[in-house]
Design a protein around this nucleic acid. Structure first.
Ligand SMILES: [Mn+2]
Ligand SMILES: [Mn+2]
Ligand SMILES: [Zn+2]
Ligand SMILES: [Zn+2]
Lengths: 138, 138
DNA sequence: CTCTACTTTAGAATCATTATAAATTACACA
DNA sequence: TGTGTAATTTATAATGATTCTAAAGTAGAG
């Protein structure tokens, strides 16, 4: 795989040694065109499917936590059932399809400008994110 | 306490027998002027403080889950650290103060009208909620 | 008042996540 | 290109939140 060098650089820049396990995680996470929303369990399944290398649960957790702390992943809370991570690390909006349990990124242009009318003395806004819950008709 | 009858009615309307434990939970949850955002642990602490009656952990969980299922409470996901519940069961927006870990309701009038520009064929919008994360200025 | 279904409870079970500590590996530098 | 050391991986144990179990207690219809 030719992207390996990119992943190795990504890991190095985060202060992580590029081990086989971590490179395989990067392949599954970042070797795709669209944003990837996933749970740890989903990721573990994909790792089993897509790679030969065995990988322990602890390494999956450690690596995802490290990538998240370094800002290469974002944690997303939709409900208390599942803990999601997101390869789109920008501040952005989501559709959540309650019928399919699918999470989809929204572009800023998909939602009108949001302006906070309430004054916030002594406080700094860190992010403004919209969650639109939808369900399939019938 | 004079509100007891209100709580008893509330419980009855949800098909729950008004036991001492459940009435005490209602007192802590609903006997207040403003929206109450809480975690189970927070609630357990308040129950100990404000009532004499002992109450088991299982009863707290069972009752909160029953009230939530019946629509008297709403579950709120801000982050994966803590699971919050909300006595404001309407669809509404929140400020989350990352410095104080405080969650505050926003009125619709605090935020400009949000309109979804993206067409959603075959889907029905269930809710549109904004989460504004803020932090104290150093 | 009595009976029965509902409720409470302590404790066990489960599930996701984190900690531990021994074996393995990456890689700086000799 | 070897060696030493710190970083990493891993199996397994521990933890913490939540749910389950099943025995004892209670509400309330009749
Ligand atoms: Mn986490
Ligand atoms: Mn729940
Ligand atoms: Zn996203
Ligand atoms: Zn609220």
């Amino acid at each position: 795989m030719n992207n390996n060098n990119i992943f190795i650089e990504k890991l190095r820049s985060a202060g992580l040694r590029p081990t086989i396990q971590r490179i395989n995680i990067c392949k599954v996470l970042f070797d795709r065109k669209k944003t990837f929303h996933f749970t740890i369990n989903h990721l573990k399944t994909l790792l089993q499917e897509k790679t030969d290398q065995k990988i322990s649960q602890a390494t999956v957790y450690n690596t995802i936590n490290a990538l998240t702390k370094k800002g290469h992943l974002k944690e997303i809370s939709i409900n208390s059932e599942k803990n999601y991570f997101d390869t789109n690390i920008t501040s952005h909006h989501h559709f959540y399809n309650e019928s399919t349990k699918e999470l989809i990124d929204l572009q800023d242009s998909d939602i009108g400008k949001i302006n906070i009318k309430k004054p916030l003395p002594g406080k700094k806004i860190k992010s403004i994110e919209v969650l639109v819950k939808v369900a399939n008709n019938n």
